[in-house]
Each structure stands twice: as structure tokens, then as C-alpha cells.
Design a protein around this nucleic acid. Sequence first.
DNA 1: TTGAAAGCGCTAACAC
DNA 2: GTGTTAGCGCTTTCAA
Lengths: 355, 355
Amino acid sequence: MKSSPSNGKDRAGQSVTIYDLAKEAGVSPATVSRILNGTAAVKSEKRERVMRLIEKYDYHPNAMARALTENHSRLIGMVVAHSGNSYYSSLFAACESEAYQRGYATMLMNTHSLPALERSTLSRLCELRVEAAVICGGSIDREPLDEDFLNLLGSVRKKIRLAVGSRSPLPGIPGIMVDHAASMDLAVRYLARLGHRKIGYVYTGPQYIGTQERLTQFRRTMEALSLPIREKWLIQVPDYNIASGAEGIDRLLRLPEHPTALLGMNDKVTVGMLQGLLDYGLSVPGDYSLLGFDDTFVAGITTPRFSSIGYDYHAYASLLLDAALGDVPESAHPMTRRIPVYLKERGSCSPPARE
Amino acid sequence: MKSSPSNGKDRAGQSVTIYDLAKEAGVSPATVSRILNGTAAVKSEKRERVMRLIEKYDYHPNAMARALTENHSRLIGMVVAHSGNSYYSSLFAACESEAYQRGYATMLMNTHSLPALERSTLSRLCELRVEAAVICGGSIDREPLDEDFLNLLGSVRKKIRLAVGSRSPLPGIPGIMVDHAASMDLAVRYLARLGHRKIGYVYTGPQYIGTQERLTQFRRTMEALSLPIREKWLIQVPDYNIASGAEGIDRLLRLPEHPTALLGMNDKVTVGMLQGLLDYGLSVPGDYSLLGFDDTFVAGITTPRFSSIGYDYHAYASLLLDAALGDVPESAHPMTRRIPVYLKERGSCSPPARE
DNA sequence: TTGAAAGCGCTAACAC
DNA sequence: GTGTTAGCGCTTTCAA
């Protein structure tokens, strides 16, 4: 027999339930539920009485209990490599806002690109029965994909919907990804249009898909424009950070011959490159034109500011959630959608002064 | 009568339960539960059998159901003003990591400092029965505190533990806050030690507690050191952003007499100030010494880099979670703990060149 | 050691 | 319109 959980006075820390409300209002729990959800018409007199009690006790329905019966949690999990990083935090902010509008709350979890953490985080999300998880950064970006990770994704996908901020790793898991090829094409053609023929590129993480796509496209566009590709000017540095950018410049300037325009893998690397150039007493765009990728706000705070290839985080977030929440049959072909890119000019590129 | 929820073959999308495991292993659900939680000794033979099934089905216990019976969700809510902002995203990253270590998952929600969103967000967290919520930014920082908001906090506090990244707003709600007075004292004394007597300060948001504490301390320390306070050099600008910093410099340079050292409310404002100075063809620290607050990474990417007063985000996060998860009796006196500050030198301050 | 059964707070199917 | 009742998946007495 079901009896009111809090009989008589409230038990400490125990929250009010629909049974409490029902009893005090002299109606059944079902009626309270109907009022709460607008599931069916209820006599306005009773509705009034219940509403007053809801006010009085500042009643909040228990989302867990609700999720248990309705079989949906209204929760979305977002697992990123480093939420402290401005790329991920901007993307998350956009996703959170998208999710909120659709009535979902968002859990954000960091993996620091550690496979063990990726595994346990995904496991936690399964336990929480999130309705979908969005994965950005970490193993998902590796090329080729790690087999263990792929297995993990496969088994997680059986339990919860998944979408990734990368190319689709598996049938049934849609991917949304920046159009890296288009971004590189845009960058190179822009510099070429300014008159540059000698273009250098400082890049990182050859094990990541984005890097590979950009590098490939770099060669393609250079060739398409009949510009010479100098392997020495393609400089691979260890990390996605400022120090690596500076290191890239160091190595570049030691070469006998230099390019007239420079591309940096992302804004952080480009900041390092800029600092490196300035430390050598060189000027931008006087001595070198400089162009970054991602168009984060840092491109606007260096001196000089630098131009950067960017894309719309809100569009990205929106597609990511559509993909995560949408109905993607498990059998669907791997499907990757691309985010379009744009060029934000800030005056760090000009026609080459030297040959 | 209780019967296995998935009788026979798995129903689509329906997940495996302890009943399924129990039935297939030929034990009772209670036994499975005991194995899962190590609540009681179970014959290793049965344990083996169950474990194998857990593997086989990649079983994940339903955290919602568990939360419902155990009456704790292992969830923490973090509500911030703008998670895209590097101050909040760094703080969140630190909190998430702290929470994860303690076995909690974290929900991050943005309020954009909108009272309506603050209210609905807190409401949502109550429904989710998070075990604690941490509030940073928005109304919680206003001085004086809005009465409606205070009421809201009071009623939320009755349902879930609360901690705020500001001063304690109410008995029973602990506050953890940067030691703004100490930070300003450190800043002014540092400049004074370099020989500066004329110090200007560009600040924002006089309706916020941090601003007020800094401004008050600015006057105090200046007085303590017998330095002249010039009201004209205390420049109030509208926003916490780059444009405001530049505006501050504009207004300052129009004055007949100028200070030799400049303080910026936070790093973003300071970036704007730096850009403003450079735009006027002035140099740092040649013409003006410049010092910021928060020591975010932006202080290291401008040219020149600038020194800034900072504090340890991890210590901050750790105290915040201690406070949120700790046992704070509702009757406890308002209690605010302060985060110590440090000075990070990056060469943007030197002895004054002029009088 | 183990199982049966009650209950966590809510929704929904099924009467009336 | 409204109440009764049976779960949702788990933990936890209480007995055995």
C-alpha cells in the first residue's frame, strides 16, 4: 500500500512530493501530476488549490523520478579535451545555450585527452542516461582513430546518441567538423591574391585529422595556383601553444631563404609566431604577412592584431545538437557535415615587400 | 508482482537492468546490487557469474534510479555569468576537476547575468536535486545585493547546499572570494616601491562588490603611503572589455596632467588600455607603467606583455567545493573566505621617467 | 549468504 | 475530470 512519504510534519532535508501536495489539497497524486504537466484538463478550483501549495512549499518536481518513468533525462553530456581552452569554452558556451533553449541541461566534462578519462567519462554519462553526448577533442580527432577508442564509441553508441566535433568515426555517429580544407584554401588563395608566392606554414599534431586535412589542402591549393612548395617551410612543432609558435619562427629564420607569408596552425601558435618575429626585430606585415586559424579573440589583442580564418561557433553548436538529438539510425552511413569558414581581416597581411 | 522488465529478448533502446542480470545469473536482484556496491559478501561463484554478464551486456547501473533510492545525485551545479569568458572557464575547469576527483559530475549553466535566467537555472538545479550549486558572477556580485535575488537564494538554500564565488550573501551560504583589498594593496605598494606617486585607475561596474572593494582599498593604500589621490585619474568606464580600456585611456590623455602608472580593472580592460596607449604612440613601460588584475593568459600575449595580479584558480576551486559540499549549518554566520593573491611580473612596470 | 518485498517520486493506463 | 494502481531501476530492511 502506498502511503504519503512524509506523514505529518516534513522530515528534515526531505523534500515535498506530489503525495504531500495531493493530500493537503485533497486530490489525488495523479491530479497534481496532470496540473504540473498540463497532461489533462483539471477543474480550475482544484488547480488553484494545488498551485497555491506549490507556491507555499516552493515545490520542485524531482527530475530523477520523472526521468525514471518517462525514460528520458533531458540531460546532455559534453565531453571535451580541455574546457579551460578558449576554443572549447566558446564552443561549449554556444552548445549550452542551444541545449538550454531546447530544454536540456548540459554536463561538461574534461578528458585532458587521456584515454582512461575518456573511457570513464563516457561510462559516467551512460550511467546518467544522458540523452546524447557530444565529444570534442582528444582521441576523436586522431588520425587514424585508435581501435580501442573506436570500440568504446561503438558500445557507448548502443546506449546513448552520440555526435562528435570531428569527422564521423562510425556509422550512426554523425560528425560535425570545421571545413579545414576550405579554410586552408581560403588562406592560401588570399595570400596569393596579395602577391605572395612563398608561403610557410607552422603546424602541430600530425596525428590529428584537422592538421592532416589542412596540410593536404595546403599542397593542393599551392599546386593549383602553381606556387612552389618548399618542404623546409612546412614546419612541424610539438604543441598547440605559444612556445611552439615561437620555436617555429626560430627554426624558420635559421634557414637560408625565407617565405614572405606565414600561416599558423591556430591562433595560439600564431601568437607565438608573432612574438617570435617581433623578438627578432621583424615587423608584421612589413617583413612577413601573418595569418592564423580559428579567429578567437586573441587575434584581436596582439600588437599588431592579426587576421585569422574563423567560423561561426553558434552554427557549429546548433548543428552539433541537431546531430546529437536528431534521429540517426544506427545503420546510417558515416556522415560528416562541414562548418563553413570565413576570413577576418585585421591588417596582418599585405603584398610582399621583397621578392 | 514484480516481473523482469525485459522478458525474453531485449526491447529496443531499453537498457539492461539488475533484474535481467539477476534472472540470467540465477540470483536475486538484491544480490546483484550487493555485488555492484560491495555492500555485503557474496559467494565468489555467483559474483563471477554476474560479473561476466555485466561485461557481456556492458551494463551500466541507472544513476537516476540509484539517486532516487539513495537520495543523493552525485551531481554538482555550477552557475556562472558567461562560461565563454576566460575567467569563468578557467575557474570552471578547476572546479570540474575537483568535483570529478570527489566523484561528482558537474553541470555548467550560463545566466548571462540575467535575473530571469538565474532564477530558472537555479530552479532547474533544484529539480535535478544536485547536491550543491556553486554560483559565480551575475547578481551575486552586486552591491548591494538585490532583495529578490536574496530571497531566491534563501529559498534555494533550503533545498540544496550553496556556495558562492563572492562574499557570503546569507547565513548558511559560504562565500569564497578573491582578496580584492589585498590585490589592490599589493598593486599600489608595488608601483610606489618603483617610485610612482601618480597612479591612475580605470575601473568598471561600480555596482559590483569587487570593484568597490578595490576602489576603497586604492584610496586606503594611497593614503597610507601619503600618495596624492587625484579623482580625475580614477576613471570609470561602462564595461569589462577591451573597448572600455581604450576609452579610459582616451579620457585620461585628454586631461591636463597625467599619472605615471596605470592600473586596469582586469586583464581585458588592461589590454584595451595598452592598445589605447600604443595607438597614441606612447610606450609601456617607458611612458606609462601598466598593471592588470586576474593574471589570465592574455597578459602574456600582448606586446609588450604586462604584469598582473593573480590568484590560484585551483585553490579557489578547491575551497569552493569544500564550501559547497561541506557541512554548513543553515544557522551559520555568513562566512567569507578569501583567496590570496600574487603579483606576476612581466616587465610592464618600471620607475617613472617623468616627474 | 541470500531472497522477498517495500519504497524512492513520478507518470500513465485504466477505470469510473 | 478524477482516482487507483502499476511500474520505472535501484537499495535496503527483514527473514530465512
